[in-house]
Design a protein around this nucleic acid. Structure first.
Length: 271
DNA sequence: CTGAGATCCTGGGGGC
DNA sequence: TGCCCCCAGGATCTCA
């Protein structure tokens, strides 16, 4: 599942490979893919535009066009944005294709077709419901503590809520909670100050380390070049139920369900 | 406001 | 071993 580090890696790859290119044609091959505006209008609006920048907001990839509009891409679970060279083979399950004037192509491929593409106008507040970016100055320990106050839901659910902090998904929520030694089902508002500070640091650290390793490939994720990430080798709990905890080396990692999501943690280390 | 459940879709894992 | 069934999972919408 592409989360913040994976989308950041994709966006950096796109920055190198497609910024400056002009879209000759856009093709929506699978009609039921959620593309806005729909159908012919989407293709017509993109044709002739030049890509001027790519960036990330939460788990969204943003492709900025010279028209001032932006193409906002949500990859959900299995979405991919992969660039193929002129004359190269087609890409599997490529449901939306941007063909550039130089022959290269940007593929929006998605096995489960949950991904979405949306063309937004200049200045449109498409991200108004997204919370703070965890890797910016605005995400301070004090800000985090303030956000937690009074929240009765689990800290795991809080971390997954994109309206609070944008970009954390199931993998990095589990990893950050392990690093901070906090039970995933603890009520968010009940964390001690010290625990909240540990979690704040853990979130920032795990996301940064994952970006350094170009993201986590546990199932479908690949970057814009079609390459897997490397952070799956650094995961301490996610998907590792039954294995000994690498910190206490006493307790085995368990899998429970918290906030309707599979959650991996160490009963001994995380309180 | 807040939390829970349904929804979408398919590969792959678990169960028999 | 092989086959079939079931279900995870992010965001969004509806409902209590």
């Amino acid at each position: 599942m592409p989360e913040l580090p994976e989308v950041e890696t994709i966006v950096r790859g796109l920055r190198r490979s497609v910024v400056g290119k002009t879209i000759a044609a856009a093709e929506v091959r699978l009609a039921r893919m959620a593309v806005a505006p729909s159908g012919v209008e989407f293709a017509r609006a993109l044709a002739g535009s030049r890509i001027v920048a790519t960036r990330r907001r939460g788990k969204y990839a943003v492709v900025e066009l010279d028209s001032g509009r932006s193409l906002v891409v949500s990859l959900r679970m299995t979405g991919r944005l992969v660039v193929t060279p002129r004359g190269g083979p087609d890409y599997p399950r490529s449901h939306v294709v941007l063909r550039f004037a130089d022959g290269a192509r940007l593929h929006f491929a998605d096995v489960r077709t949950f991904g979405r593409m949306r063309l937004v106008e200049a200045g449109e507040a498409w991200d108004r419901d997204l919370g703070v970016e965890p890797l910016t100055r605005g995400f301070t320990p004090e800000a985090f503590i303030g956000m937690l106050a009074g929240r009765t839901g689990s800290i795991k659910a809080f971390l997954l809520d994109q309206r609070r902090i944008a970009g954390i998904g199931n993998i990095y929520a589990s990893e950050a909670l392990w690093e901070a030694r906090i039970r995933p089902d603890r009520p968010a508002g009940k964390l001690t100050r010290a625990a909240a500070c540990r979690l704040h640091d853990a979130i920032v650290n795990v996301l940064r380390r994952a970006i350094t390793k170009r993201g986590t490939s546990v199932d479908d994720y690949v970057d814009a070049e079609g390459l897997k990430g490397g952070f799956q080798n650094d995961l301490r709990v996610y998907g590792r139920h039954g294995e000994l905890c690498s910190r206490c080396r006493t307790s085995r990692i368990v899998r429970t369900v918290v906030a309707q999501r599979g959650t991996w943690w160490c009963r001994r280390c995380q309180r």
